[in-house]
């Protein structure tokens, strides 16, 4: 691992200004993705700004939404009564990811920001456009069984590994971000991650120094009729071959709304929009 300076930020303001004042710096939260990539010499930050102690750990109800803090741990989010009651789909998706130990460390912000990646991204002796612009894509001729089916480009065929994000895509979440100069933005989930196109180096639309502060999820009527299904090579503790977050709103025996999002199939969590037209308004036999 390369040498880096380490500092702790105690407020959002601290973190954002530290990031703009320190070239080549990165935020670190749970560290489960970043430390791993630094050990492999894939990420080479000159400085780490630890944001895990910023007081953004609450899960709370706010108007018609539930807001989950960016620094809340994945475990605490999945177990929170507000999440379990309103969005069992999200709880299930979080529990389907990684292991208990990793979910105890991983934060919600970090989960969104974990790299879209593949084995060659980790292997610095192989070409990879995502790691090194213009070097080529080793996955095209190599191991690519788990790679993208939708939205890929000639430059990169890797998939976003998160389970949590698949549920958030289905639930139309909104990501709150604070950037340099205290500028805040609210990004609809479908616009948060990006497709590789001709710049696979970027997984999402955040700029350097942008800090995720929270994720808000509009309340809905899917709770009784949702499921997160993850298909993988072993029963647990493996990335998805494919996963599906599916949710139905049923009223008077009719399907009022359908949400389907797919994981492990694209550079970003994939919202299947067609599913809606096909199934909506069909009557259903519960």
């Amino acid at each position: 691992m390369r040498p880096f300076k380490y500092q702790t930020a105690s407020t959002v303001k601290d973190a954002v200004s530290a990031a703009s004042n320190s070239e080549g710096s990165k935020f670190i939260a749970g560290g489960t993705n970043l430390v791993d990539l630094m050990k492999e010499d894939v990420e080479r930050p000159a400085a780490l700004i630890d944001v895990s102690r910023i007081d953004l750990r609450q899960v709370r109800s706010e108007g018609d939404s539930v807001v989950i803090g960016a620094m809340a741990k994945n475990t605490d989010t999945a177990n929170h009564p507000l999440v379990r009651m309103n969005f069992p789909l999200l709880s299930q998706a979080i529990f389907a990811g990684a292991s208990a130990q990793i979910r105890n460390m991983a934060t919600n912000g970090g989960n969104l920001m974990q790299r879209t990646r593949c084995v060659y991204f980790y292997d610095t002796s192989m070409p990879c456009n995502k790691r090194e612009k213009g070097s080529g894509c080793a996955a095209k001729e190599g191991l690519n069984r788990m790679h993208a089916i939708f939205g890929w480009s000639d430059g990169c065929v890797a998939v976003h590994p998160s389970d949590m994000c698949v549920a958030l895509a289905a639930l139309d979440a909104v990501v709150s971000v604070e950037g340099p100069g205290g500028k805040t933005r609210a990004i609809p989930f479908s616009e948060f991650h990006r497709l590789p196109g001709n710049d696979p180096s970027r997984d999402n639309t955040l700029e350097n120094g942008d800090l995720i502060t929270s994720i808000s999820i509009p309340k809905n009527k899917f709770a009784g009729n949702s499921y997160y299904l993850k298909v993988r090579d072993r029963a647990s503790y493996a990335f998805a071959l494919v996963s599906v977050a599916a949710a139905l709103e049923i009223a008077g025996g009719k399907v009022k709304d359908v949400r389907i999002a797919l994981g492990g199939v694209a550079h970003k969590p994939w919202r299947a929009k067609k599913g809606r037209g096909v199934s909506e308004r069909k009557s259903c036999d519960k």
């Binding site: 670190i28 749970g30 560290g31 489960t32 780490l48 475990t75 460390m105």
Partner: peptide
């Protein structure tokens, strides 16, 4: 972070000590 051999309990929660920076 793939095997769990380094699991310890920090503030009552099991975590992986190999992906935890001592500085944190």
């Amino acid at each position: 972070g793939q095997c769990g051999a380094c699991t310890v309990i920090a503030d009552g929660r099991r975590v992986l000590s190999c992906l935890t920076l001592a500085a944190a």
